[in-house]
Computed example of a mutant assay.
Amino acid sequence: MRPLRYSINVTLDGCVHHEAGVAPDEELMRFWTAEMQRADAVIYGRTTYEMMEGAWRRPASGQWPDWMSEWEVPFAEAIDRVPKYVVSSTLDAVDWNAELIRGDLSETVRQLKQQPGEGLSVGGVTLPLALAELGLIDEYTFVVHPVIAGHGPRLLDGLNERTRLEFVDRREFASGAVANRYGPVPAA
């Protein structure tokens, strides 16, 4: 069974909004590229899918935009080619190497996990909360940035039950950010 991994940037006060001042530098972008390359597919909700598509989809010209730094291109290429599953009740169709998911989220994700491969990645805020509630996330990676946002959506805010995690590993970055990786504590 391939694991479902949730990875996200987060501020010291738990904010996970993409505009909270936690844009990756070159070192962090290499980390995020490696994380994307560990995934056979990604699962996004509508909001995250549209945000990622707007930033990282290869333009029709085939040339990456001028605003993109050379060190961002490997991430763009990795996310551009990975298969995507989009959970949405409001979208009628998706493209960008994507398939729309509707219906029973738990059953669909369980079926995706049963397929062979290295792993699935989930990003965003709302969908990971639902998947955590269902007990479907096998690994959590929180890249904690030395920033206090003071506002914005919080990491897994609204989780109904406490989820115990066990430490797996840690990586420190020159920026002061720290990637902490955890797995769920097995049931006794």
Score class of each variant (00 low, 15 high):
Asn160Glu: 15
Val168Gln: 13
Gly158Lys: 00
Val168Asn: 06
Phe142Ser: 03
Leu120Phe: 00
Val125Glu: 06
Phe173Lys: 09
Leu165Glu: 09
Val143Cys: 07
Ala174Gln: 14
Glu139Asn: 11
Lys113Cys: 06
Gly124Ile: 01
Gly135Gln: 07
Asn160Met: 08
Leu159Asn: 09
Ala130Ser: 14
Ala149Asp: 01
Arg170Val: 12
Thr141Ile: 10
Leu129Gln: 06
Leu155Ile: 07
Glu161Val: 11
Phe173Leu: 10
Lys113Leu: 08
Arg170Lys: 08
Leu129Ser: 07
Glu166Ala: 10
Pro116Ala: 10
Arg162Tyr: 11
Asp138Met: 02
Leu120Trp: 00
Gln111Gly: 09
Val168Trp: 10
Glu139Gly: 11
Lys113His: 05
Glu133Asn: 04
Thr163Trp: 08
Gln111Leu: 09
Ala132Ile: 04
Phe142Met: 12
Leu127Ser: 03
Val125Asn: 03
Ile148His: 08
Arg162Val: 07
Phe167Tyr: 08
Glu133Cys: 05
Gln111Trp: 04
Ile148Asp: 03
Glu161Tyr: 10
Leu156Pro: 00
Arg164Asn: 14
Gly117Asn: 13
Arg154Asp: 08
Arg164Ala: 15
Arg170Gln: 13
Gly117Asp: 14
His145Glu: 06
Gly152Cys: 07
Val168Ile: 15
His145Ala: 05
Arg170Glu: 13
Thr126Tyr: 15
Leu129Pro: 06
His145Arg: 02
Glu161Lys: 12
Gly119Val: 11
Leu156Ala: 00
Val125Lys: 01
Phe173Asn: 13
Leu155Ala: 04
His151Asp: 15
Lys113Gly: 07
Ile137Ala: 03
Leu129Asp: 04
Arg170Phe: 05
Arg162Thr: 12
Gln115Thr: 08
Leu134Thr: 02
Arg164Trp: 12
Glu172Ser: 14
Gly123Asn: 10
Gly152Asn: 07
Thr126Cys: 02
Ala174Asn: 10
Ala149Thr: 05
Asp157Asn: 12
Ile137His: 03
Gly135Thr: 10
Asp169Pro: 07
Asn160Ala: 13
Ile148Gln: 03
His145Gln: 06
Leu131Tyr: 01
Phe142Tyr: 14
Leu159Ile: 13
Pro116His: 09
Gly158Tyr: 00
Val122Thr: 13
Gln115Met: 09
Tyr140Lys: 10
Arg110Ile: 01
Ala132Trp: 03
Thr126His: 15
Glu161Trp: 10
